[in-house]
Simulated scan of single mutants.
Amino acid sequence: MSEQRSYPRHVKTDAGDIEFRLMERADEAAVLAFAQKLPTHDLLFLPRNISQPKVLAAWVNEIERGAITSLLAIKGDEVVGCGTLVRDPHSWSPHVGEIRMVVSLSVRGEGVGRALSQETFALALGAGLDKLSVQMTVDQRAAITLFESLGFRAEALLRDHVRDVDGNTHDIVVLGHNIAQVRGQLEAYGVSDAVR
């Protein structure tokens, strides 16, 4: 990363004070409890079902390996959201990152998702990435609207791309954002420190 953000960070939302901090192995049980409360359809935001302990353990291994940076949104002592930045510096697209994000039903519509997406976006800026993508099912309109408000635009529709636990397939929309352009605009305006 070209710039490290410092954590924990605290944000005031309509849901109250939310702490953002980096996920660690010690958070595994709390994140599992959070994931197991999510509606199954929400888990389709993610390529793997994090409500399964073995999947969550593999996720933590990827965090420790440095391939993933995950932020937890904490209200009181409960995980209410998770934003993840995934990148692979050894792939053909080392300049591209993917955001994966889920938020608890208990805090939806109260600014937690927006704050978490902005914080994850700022991580991507600090990581020196040029492009970001995010994917979700086409019926997750609130999430699509949220990411479009951050400058993401639809780039692809993948038909019948994910299959839920009941065997039903769902279309996925892929949104992209040219963050190199945002970084350049911030530098041009002399406010590149605004996202720190």
Score class of each variant (00 low, 15 high):
residue 120 T to E: 07
residue 167 G to W: 01
residue 154 A to M: 01
residue 4 Q to T: 13
residue 126 G to A: 12
residue 27 D to K: 07
residue 116 L to G: 10
residue 57 A to C: 06
residue 190 G to S: 15
residue 55 V to D: 04
residue 157 L to H: 06
residue 134 V to K: 05
residue 98 E to F: 05
residue 111 G to M: 01
residue 179 I to V: 15
residue 178 N to G: 04
residue 18 I to Q: 05
residue 97 G to Y: 00
residue 156 A to P: 05
residue 3 E to Y: 05
residue 52 Q to A: 03
residue 27 D to N: 08
residue 67 A to M: 01
residue 65 R to C: 07
residue 64 E to N: 14
residue 173 V to P: 00
residue 60 V to Q: 14
residue 146 L to F: 09
residue 82 C to D: 06
residue 86 V to A: 13
residue 182 V to N: 13
residue 59 W to N: 09
residue 54 K to W: 08
residue 99 I to W: 01
residue 192 S to V: 13
residue 184 G to N: 11
residue 56 L to F: 03
residue 163 R to F: 11
residue 164 D to M: 14
residue 109 G to I: 07
residue 99 I to Y: 01
residue 81 G to I: 08
residue 173 V to N: 00
residue 145 T to G: 08
residue 51 S to F: 02
residue 156 A to Y: 02
residue 152 F to C: 07
residue 51 S to K: 08
residue 95 H to M: 03
residue 151 G to D: 07
residue 35 A to L: 10
residue 113 G to W: 03
residue 72 L to Y: 06
residue 83 G to C: 03
residue 35 A to H: 12
residue 82 C to G: 05
residue 44 L to K: 01
residue 120 T to F: 02
residue 116 L to M: 14
residue 130 D to S: 11
residue 53 P to I: 00
residue 76 G to S: 14
residue 120 T to M: 02
residue 189 Y to N: 13
residue 79 V to A: 15
residue 75 K to H: 14
residue 159 R to D: 02
residue 58 A to N: 08
residue 108 R to S: 04
residue 155 E to H: 07
residue 169 T to F: 04
residue 80 V to S: 04
residue 11 V to Y: 05
residue 179 I to Y: 07
residue 69 T to R: 14
residue 109 G to C: 10
residue 45 F to E: 09
residue 67 A to T: 01
residue 189 Y to A: 14
residue 113 G to C: 04
residue 11 V to E: 12
residue 157 L to S: 09
residue 86 V to P: 01
residue 37 K to A: 15
residue 61 N to K: 15
residue 153 R to H: 12
residue 140 Q to W: 05
residue 129 L to Q: 05
residue 140 Q to A: 13
residue 20 F to M: 00
residue 112 V to M: 05
residue 173 V to A: 00
residue 117 S to C: 12
residue 87 R to V: 07
residue 2 S to A: 15
residue 71 L to E: 00
residue 3 E to F: 06
residue 62 E to G: 12
residue 43 L to M: 03
residue 55 V to N: 10
residue 65 R to L: 11
residue 64 E to V: 03
residue 180 A to G: 15
residue 177 H to M: 12
residue 172 I to S: 11
residue 50 I to C: 10
residue 147 F to K: 00
residue 62 E to D: 11
residue 186 L to M: 14
residue 170 H to F: 11
